[in-house]
C-alpha cells in the first residue's frame, strides 16, 4: 500500500539546507494500523505531508497503491489524494462557512468518480458518526469532538484506502478522544489502512505497529524509544 524508500526532505533556513528527513524507509500494508511517534520538531508532520502528497520529496521514492508518487505531476497527485487518501487533522480543518453537510460533501466535488448517490453517501456517513441531525449547522456551532467526527466523515466519504491522521485527538478532551479513537478503530475494521501521527502513547497503543521518528529516520518501536517518548 505505502512504500517509502530513502525519502529525504530538507528546508532552507538562512540560505542553508536543513535536513528534516534523512532517508526514511517505510512500508505499510493494506489494512494496517500504524502509529508514528516522535518529539516535537522531529519531522512527523513533514512525513505526513509527504505521505499525503501535499508536499514533494527532495530525494528517494514513494509508491502509493502501486503508483510512483514521486514521478507524478501536481494534477495527478491531487487526483490520487482525492481518490486514495482521507485526512484527519488535529485542528479539524473544516471550512467555517460551509455547513456540516457541505464540508463532508467537499471531496466528492473534486472526485473524478461518478457518484450516483452523493447525498445518500454523505447522509449515511453523518448517521454513522452520529451527526445527521446537525447537517445544516456550521462548524463553529459544534464541539471539538463533533468537529473531529465531521472531519472523519469527510475523510471517509470518497472511500479512500488510506486514512492519514495528524494528532487526531490533540485538541480533544479525554472523553471525546475515546469516541474519536473508537471511530478510527471501526474504520480500520472496515478495511482501511490507518496511519496516525501522535505523541500520545494512549493513541499510539491502538495501532498494530508503532514507529518512532528520530534524527530524520524511522525506527521500529523499542523500550528505549518508549523511554524517549
Amino acid at each position: 500500500m505505502i512504500e517509502l524508500r530513502e525519502a529525504k526532505k530538507w528546508f532552507r533556513s538562512g540560505g542553508e539546507k536543513v535536513p528534516v528527513l534523512r532517508g526514511v524507509n517505510l512500508r505499510v500494508e493494506q489494512g494496517e494500523y500504524v502509529a508514528i511517534m516522535g518529539k516535537s520538531g522531529s519531522g512527523k508532520s513533514t512525513l505526513l505531508n509527504l505521505l499525503g502528497t501535499l508536499d514533494t520529496l527532495d530525494g528517494g521514492e514513494y509508491e502509493l497503491a502501486g503508483k510512483a508518487v514521486h514521478k507524478m505531476s501536481k494534477r495527478k497527485r491531487a487526483a490520487l489524494r482525492n481518490k486514495e487518501i482521507g485526512f484527519v487533522f488535529q485542528h479539524f480543518h473544516l471550512i467555517p462557512n460551509l455547513s456540516v453537510y457541505h464540508n463532508v460533501m467537499l471531496p466528492l466535488t473534486y472526485s473524478k468518480r461518478r457518484w450516483s448517490k452523493k447525498r445518500e453517501r454523505v447522509m449515511d456517513l453523518l448517521e454513522q458518526v452520529g451527526l445527521a441531525h446537525k447537517k445544516r449547522q456550521k462548524p463553529s456551532r459544534l464541539s471539538g469532538g463533533e468537529k473531529q467526527r465531521v472531519a472523519i466523515a469527510r475523510a471517509l466519504v470518497n472511500e479512500p484506502g488510506l486514512i492519514l491522521a495528524d494528532e487526531p485527538t490533540g485538541s480533544l478532551d479525554e472523553e471525546t478522544t475515546e469516541s474519536v479513537l473508537h471511530l478510527l478503530d471501526r474504520v480500520h475494521k472496515d478495511g482501511a489502512t490507518i496511519l496516525v501521527i501522535t505523541h500520545d502513547m494512549e493513541v499510539a497503543k491502538r495501532a498494530e505497529r508503532i514507529l518512532f521518528l528520530k534524527n530524520g529516520v524511522l525506527e521500529e518501536w523499542s523500550d528505549e524509544a518508549a523511554y524517549r517518548v
Binding site: 499525503g52 501535499l54 501536481k74 494534477r75 491531487a78 487526483a79 489524494r81 482525492n82 481518490k83 485526512f87 480543518h93 473544516l94 471550512i95 467555517p96 467537499l106 471531496p107 473534486y110 472526485s111 469527510r154 470518497n158
Partner: peptide
C-alpha cells in the same frame, strides 16, 4: 487555510 483544505481534499491548481 480553506485553499489548503480544498487542495488536501483533491482540488487541483486549475
Amino acid at each position: 487555510r480553506e485553499i489548503g483544505i480544498r487542495k488536501a481534499l483533491g482540488a487541483t491548481t486549475f
